Amino acid sequence: MISRYWSCRVKPGEEENYVNYLKVEILPHLATLKGFRGASIRRRDDGDFPEYIFISEWTSREAIKAFAGKEIHLAVVSEKAQKMMRSFDQEVRHYELIHSA
Rank of each mutant, 00 (worst) to 15 (best):
37 R>I: 02
32 T>P: 08
98 I>K: 13
45 D>C: 05
61 R>M: 14
99 H>N: 14
61 R>H: 10
53 I>T: 14
73 H>R: 03
95 Y>M: 13
7 S>I: 12
38 G>K: 02
28 P>K: 07
66 A>V: 12
92 V>G: 03
63 A>S: 10
74 L>W: 02
28 P>S: 03
86 R>S: 14
22 L>D: 05
93 R>S: 07
79 E>N: 07
92 V>Q: 08
27 L>E: 05
55 I>V: 15
6 W>V: 10
58 W>M: 06
71 E>V: 00
73 H>T: 01
87 S>R: 08
24 V>N: 14
99 H>E: 15
26 I>N: 07
67 F>P: 07
39 A>Q: 04
78 S>C: 02
26 I>H: 02
30 L>F: 13
43 R>K: 13
28 P>F: 04
34 K>Q: 03
31 A>I: 05
47 G>P: 05
89 D>W: 09
77 V>G: 01
65 K>C: 15
92 V>R: 10
6 W>C: 14
62 E>W: 04
27 L>P: 07
85 M>E: 11
76 V>S: 07
19 V>C: 02
38 G>S: 00
39 A>P: 06
38 G>C: 03
3 S>G: 13
66 A>T: 03
40 S>M: 08
38 G>H: 00
95 Y>E: 11
84 M>N: 04
69 G>T: 05
20 N>K: 14
85 M>W: 11
33 L>K: 01
30 L>K: 11
73 H>G: 07
21 Y>F: 13
9 R>H: 10
92 V>Y: 06
2 I>N: 09
66 A>S: 06
26 I>L: 12
2 I>F: 15
99 H>Q: 14
75 A>I: 04
66 A>P: 03
94 H>P: 04
40 S>A: 11
91 E>V: 02
2 I>L: 10
45 D>F: 13
34 K>L: 04
86 R>D: 02
5 Y>A: 07
37 R>F: 09
5 Y>S: 12
22 L>N: 09
60 S>L: 00
46 D>G: 01
88 F>K: 03
5 Y>D: 09
20 N>Y: 09
5 Y>H: 14
26 I>R: 06
88 F>N: 12
24 V>A: 12
16 E>G: 00
24 V>F: 06
84 M>Q: 13
70 K>R: 12
91 E>I: 07
11 K>F: 11
3 S>D: 13
87 S>G: 02
53 I>S: 13
14 E>G: 01
36 F>H: 08
11 K>H: 10
6 W>A: 10
97 L>P: 05
99 H>I: 12
3 S>K: 15
72 I>G: 02
1 M>I: 15
65 K>M: 14
12 P>E: 15
94 H>R: 05
59 T>C: 12
63 A>L: 11
43 R>H: 00
84 M>T: 15
51 E>L: 05
19 V>H: 02
21 Y>A: 00
38 G>W: 05
77 V>D: 05
16 E>V: 01
31 A>V: 02
95 Y>N: 11
12 P>C: 14
74 L>K: 08
100 S>G: 07
69 G>Y: 08
16 E>D: 05
